[in-house]
Design a protein around this nucleic acid. Structure first.
Lengths: 166, 166
DNA sequence: TATTTAACCTACTAAAACAGTCGGCTAATA
DNA sequence: TATTAGCCGACTGTTTTAGTAGGTTAAATA
């Protein structure tokens, strides 16, 4: 079992999509900018998310990604699963042939743990996350920063420009 | 976060000690035999377990390892911790500086998950495991096998020899 | 129609961790 | 004195992580 940046990035990116849903497709460049994740790495992760039908893509200018289902129907466990980070804690993938064909001494313990983690993560949907106070605060901060960056790069200065940029 | 054979081996070996407690020190060779774990690898793990004062060692012939505390006062979480397999699921070790000094979008989610896992694993003591039916069954099988191996290697054949071997 | 955008795809890589192995040393016992 | 079994450090093949690099393709826009 492992939970590294791969799974964390995937969930973070999916949550970014959820937070900016209804504004048309979101480009990976935007997510990369907001979440501080390498663009090429995001591409690899989204290839897997797409294959697992968690996101839909739109190509060409103005294109990007959208959630393929309602936020309430996507949970954290399946996102982590999609990028090949198993939540399974057993060494035998649950089959029970851990010690030369038979179950090892601690097999059931790891089964219980896996179940526990899976139950917890699959009970949390993207909608749950979007509605959390702490998530909304971080999202607000990131969006402000994102707009500021945009203005810096375009060199526009008036409040009207700022509005236009958003 | 990761949970691989390292942590699983550590818990399994500690449980083996717990199951054979009261029979004097248990050698790593015995644990290696019963649990199918490489002896040299066990040595490395027990060095860490010893440094974390989870086991006591006795050197010389007839030596081995014993639990340093009562089975009810050793839980699974601290065993895994001792071999450097953190149960922490955050990328920032809980500090909250995941995204260039500030918290990332999913920081609190991983905190919650870590807490969840830690609560689960630290609630399970070695005594709990020893008392489980499934553990007792596997232990019984392993002990039978262990004795059979012993007889095979010594070439003794009568029931009396078998009793003597145990 | 040419250009730009942004998805899509393959291959490569440095660094780390995993799961060991090997060889030798030291303390205690028989 | 020989044996047992813990102790210790160094080394190794393999896998995974967390990227990078360099290209191709589809769609929109100028």
């Amino acid at each position: 079992m492992r939970l590294t940046t791969k799974g964390r990035y995937a969930v973070t990116a999916m949550l970014d999509l959820a937070l900016h849903a209804g504004k048309g497709p979101i480009s990976l460049a935007d997510i990369s900018e907001r979440q501080g994740i390498s663009l090429s790495y995001l591409e690899q992760l989204f290839a897997k998310l797409r294959r697992n039908e968690l996101v839909r893509s739109v190509r060409g200018p103005g294109g990007g990604y959208q959630l393929s289902r309602d936020q309430v129907h996507i949970n954290v466990a399946e996102v982590i699963d999609a990028v090949n980070e198993s939540v399974d804690a057993t060494g035998c993938h649950g089959s029970g042939d851990c010690q030369s064909g038979q179950t090892c001494l601690t097999h059931h313990l790891w089964c219980d743990l896996s179940e526990q983690i899976h139950a917890f993560l699959s009970s949390i949907t993207l909608l749950d996350l979007v509605q959390r106070k702490d998530v909304q605060q971080v999202a607000k901060r990131q969006d402000r920063r994102y707009v500021d960056q945009l203005i810096m790069s375009t060199g526009e200065k008036t409040p009207a420009d700022r509005k236009a940029a958003v």
